[in-house]
């Protein structure tokens, strides 16, 4: 026992504590109370309950005062010296990290190949093949659509899933479910509705403009999606345009009207169908060892609306997911429900 205690006392931490406290050991201090307690309790006379109580109270008071002293010491240190030290450390670290990142980026920039050089690593056989053979192999006039929806369709599936997962996380965090919590949630929803009392509702100017613009915007979104394999555009941009149109309609006419055609159920069904269609239609490349260039769907005549194999349908799926996600984000952040 003694040996152990000596070992402990001679290690660096107790010595440091002792030095801090000017000589007395931390273990001594910690054991002091316990030892005294052991000594006091049996010796106390049996009938002297009140005296014992008073002793205990005194002890407690002293302990409490010690603790208070320690805390105030620590707080004073952290307020004066510690704060200065932390600030200095923070500044030095910030500058060092900034300089390090600048140095790293400059190093990277120095190693970049010169711009426009034909021998750059970006100009390899992959991009040459995309440009030269892309139209024959995929049937898409738009090389980008051919790349992202045929050669690299898995990548795009991942991107659509990222959007869907983001919408799901927002749902989990922000949705006020009325089935789950009963009256509480109803009250919360009503409070949200009250909060929106200040918003300009039923604005006649906005409604007139929206009734003219929303069909145009939706039509334009559909055009971008459907012509994704012929002209610049595609599922992502077209879906964003359609989602913006829906949000405009919602702002102009309120939730009552949008709930007639777009509810939480619509969101679920449409997103699920689009994503699973995409996943299923691209699953066969798992079984062909990702070597799906020889698709059994013929590319058709490039430039026609129904050509390029699966690309238009995949564009539609991506567009639906993006549109639903945009709208879901807006409604969830605004109302907490759909």
């Amino acid at each position: 026992m003694a040996k152990t205690r000596n070992d402990y006392e001679n290690s660096w931490w107790p010595r440091f504590v002792r030095w801090l406290k000017n000589g007395s050991s931390a273990l001594d201090d910690a054991m002091y109370g316990d030892l005294e307690e052991e000594a006091v309790l049996p010796d106390a006379p049996a009938g002297d309950a009140e005296k014992r109580e008073a002793q205990w109270d005194e002890r407690r008071r002293l302990l409490l005062r010690d603790e208070q002293d320690m805390y105030s010491q620590v707080h004073a240190w952290s307020r004066s010296k510690g704060a200065k030290l932390a600030q200095w450390f923070y500044r030095v670290t910030a500058v060092v990290i900034c300089l390090g990142i600048i140095w790293m980026l400059l190093q990277t920039a120095a190693y970049l190949p010169p711009f426009g050089n034909p021998d750059n690593p970006a100009n390899n056989e992959v991009s040459r093949r995309y440009i030269e053979q892309g139209m024959q192999e995929t049937g898409a006039v738009n090389i980008v659509a051919g790349m992202i929806l045929d050669y690299r369709a898995f990548d795009t599936l991942g991107e659509s899933n990222v959007l869907f997962i983001a919408a799901c996380s927002v749902l989990i965090l922000l949705r006020i479910s009325s089935e789950k919590h009963g009256g509480d949630a109803v009250a919360q929803l009503e409070a949200e509705a009250d909060d929106r009392m200040y918003e300009p509702k039923n604005d006649l100017i906005l409604q007139r403009i929206a009734s003219f613009l929303v069909p145009l915007i939706l039509l334009f979104g559909v055009y971008i999606i459907m012509n994704g394999h012929i002209s610049p555009g595609g599922g992502f941009s077209g879906g964003a345009v359609m989602g913006a149109g829906l949000i405009l309609y919602l702002n102009a006419f309120g939730f009552r009207k949008t709930e007639r055609f777009f509810t939480f159920k619509t969101f679920k069904v449409v997103s699920l169908c689009a994503l699973s269609f995409y996943a299923v239609s691209k699953a066969y490349s798992f079984f062909t060892g990702a070597n799906h260039l020889s698709s059994f769907i013929s590319p058709g005549t490039p430039g026609r609306l129904f050509s390029a194999g699966l690309i238009p349908y995949l564009n539609i799926a991506v567009g639906l997911v993006v549109c639903c996600t945009m709208y879901a984000f807006y409604t969830l952040f605004r109302k907490g429900d759909m």
Partner: peptide, 21 residues
């Protein structure tokens, strides 16, 4: 045409928002 339709409406909405708040 689109700009003439949308831009005044958005300014109108911002102004109305400011007045209501």
């Amino acid at each position: 045409c689109i700009l003439w339709m949308t831009s005044p409406v958005s300014s109108h909405l911002i102004g109305r928002m400011e007045i209501t708040i």
